[in-house]
Design a protein around this nucleic acid. Structure first.
Lengths: 339, 339
DNA sequence: CGGTTTCATGTAACCGGTTTCATGGACGCT
DNA sequence: AGCGTCCATGAAACCGGTTACATGAAACCG
């Protein structure tokens, strides 16, 4: 059961190791007959080139590091689409011959700003994908600055060979507000995400932009803060319901909050969309399942993964001379029954 | 920015490469002064041992392959807990110094039963974790038979160094049925998962066992097939509602189906739990968010990851002489408002 | 026909670690 | 002093690939 090495294969095929190597890496330079013969013997032998040896010789591991910090003592923002992102990443990277190495950060390592860079050099990683955890991990800067091809999801970053993929939060928010306006609403409230998070801040900005574009006034009392969680949305909605002049339309910056808002409205004995129209954000699974179905701004979930993979591979292969521009994923308004 | 090699470090520390190597791998055999001196120089230099070189020399990669097939052309069962499993795996493996390599299976590879084993030999993987996709991938057998340390999640497997982690599906189902009985129901229906999947089959078995234990008759018309998806659950529930004698209690073998069932019931103008009591299975996030909150059988989600990691490392380190026995994770009944 | 290209292939150094075995000094014992 | 142990260390082979360079045969050319 010992694995065949390139030397054995060379001996059996009666060629030199260089020729065998060329058969696999540079097939066009070797004579067709020789090539086919070597491939045949290789198949018989079940030969598998040893990746560690290749990596050692070439400095290319064909592996991309995935940084997805999950320190449970300091819980970060739990990404709602991890699975979709992973599928997108894996599929797109696979097609280009790369594997994903999920970097372990604890272990016996001494943590520090260079924790990721260290892992990169140790494993000769060809690039890195960073999934934001909302915790402002300073190690990302160090990594991006080090010149390793690096793509960050949901969080801007700059560096010689770094770029990022982000959803068009402001655009999505604008489309939500425009949709409510088109449904005949002139007074549109919003429940925001935390201002410290990028999606929270940008969606609020988009809301304001669209109000301005429509010539609607911005009224501070129609803006209440949420936290991206259900209970927060419910509480925020209660505050809106208590206003003297109850809003008839609300843009909620996250679906989970929107479901909370829906609940608050229902419990107040009001109806969606007759009394109050609601637009959410994210298009989580739940959005399609609640009653009434939630109109919401959908993100291109798999797009995160595939775009990241494409950008990364472009940098690795040098197809993109320098860092490619950030990818801004378009959003799509999914109209259901809540508006 | 060239990385330091062991030879440079040896030269600067004025020792041999063998000594440097020992400082990192066998610290106890080297004189304390020498050791500290070498470590100091190493830190100054920012020395990072090259993992490919180590792997080449030792045949140990300190990497564990993760097989999580996501072929979208033939969609398998989408695991509800991927994120939790990954967190558990990553944390437990990190602590023991292992990384997770997400294996790409497409690429230019010719697929075949040995697709995973090939990846294992190429990368010198120390072990493999297999996440079931409900697709009966035959390659798993080949892998387990090959003698690579291998842990399968949710799906039994046997091999010289293979074991699996599974939830106590039958036990969970029994507790669900017992709970409904305790709530005063004597006629309990069930909506099953596909009989070809292990969770589907075992939860049905548990249902029957508990009926028997309670002295209740098993009635075939009260058992309808679902597919673990929402629409399937809804359809199945409709069939149950059409029965002459409508059941007052239903054990649904998956939460997503249970939500579908909930919807069917609501649409029929009936109320949960007053008219029909419902117990789900899995405790997905959604279960807590629907109205009424779904009583359900919760699995030890992170336990999948941590148990798998523990079993795998035991096999790798040889702590477990042969394959350790399967791990059966206990379930926990979470009572909410649907019963 | 000698000289230059071109093509296919082989030789051997190299990538950066680990590990076996040899070596030599310090120590303890008779 | 002579001998055997123990301890710390070094020299060099080895892991399994890649690749720069050398080689030799065939093709081409004036």
């Amino acid at each position: 059961m010992t694995v065949a090495t390139i030397r054995e294969l060379a001996r059996l095929a009666d060629v030199s190791v260089a020729t065998v190597s060329r058969v696999f890496n540079n097939p066009e330079v070797v004579n067709q007959e020789t090539r086919e013969h070597v491939l045949r013997v290789a198949a018989d032998l079940g030969y598998q080139p040893n990746e560690s040896a290749r990596t050692l010789a070439t400095k290319k591991s064909h592996m991309v590091g995935l940084i997805w910090d999950t320190d449970h003592r300091r819980p970060g923002w739990r990404h709602p689409f991890l699975q979709e992102i992973l599928i997108g990443l894996k599929t797109a990277l696979s097609a280009r011959g790369y594997h994903l190495l999920l970097l372990a950060t604890s272990g016996s390592e001494i943590p520090g700003p260079d924790i990721y860079s260290r892992a990169v050099t140790r494993h000769n990683l060809d690039g890195v994908v960073f999934i934001d955890n909302g915790r402002q991990d300073p190690a990302l800067h160090h990594l991006a600055a080090s010149g390793v091809p690096c793509v960050s999801l949901d969080r801007p970053v700059s560096g010689p060979r770094a770029t990022y993929v982000i959803s068009d939060n402001a655009g999505g928010a604008r489309s939500a507000v425009a949709h409510l306006y088109a449904r005949g609403h002139g007074s549109i409230a919003t429940i925001t995400g935390p201002a410290t998070t990028r999606p929270g801040a940008e969606r609020l900005a988009g809301y304001r932009e669209q109000l301005a574009a429509l010539g609607l006034p911005y009224r501070a009392e129609l803006v209440v803060d949420g936290d991206f969680y259900l209970a927060g949305g419910q509480a925020a909605m209660c505050r809106l319901l208590d206003l003297d002049e109850r809003p008839r339309a609300v843009f909620v910056a996250g679906d989970e909050m929107a479901v909370g808002a829906l609940r608050a409205i229902t419990e107040a004995g009001l109806k969606v969309p007759e009394d109050i129209a609601l637009v959410g954000y994210d298009d989580i699974e739940l959005a399609a399942l609640v009653r009434p179905g939630l109109t919401t701004v959908a993100q291109d979930k798999a797009g995160f993964g595939t775009s990241a993979a494409a950008a990364l591979v472009a940098m690795i292969d040098g197809t993109a001379g320098e860092a490619p521009p950030p990818t801004v994923l378009p959003t799509r308004l999914v109209v259901r029954d809540s508006t």
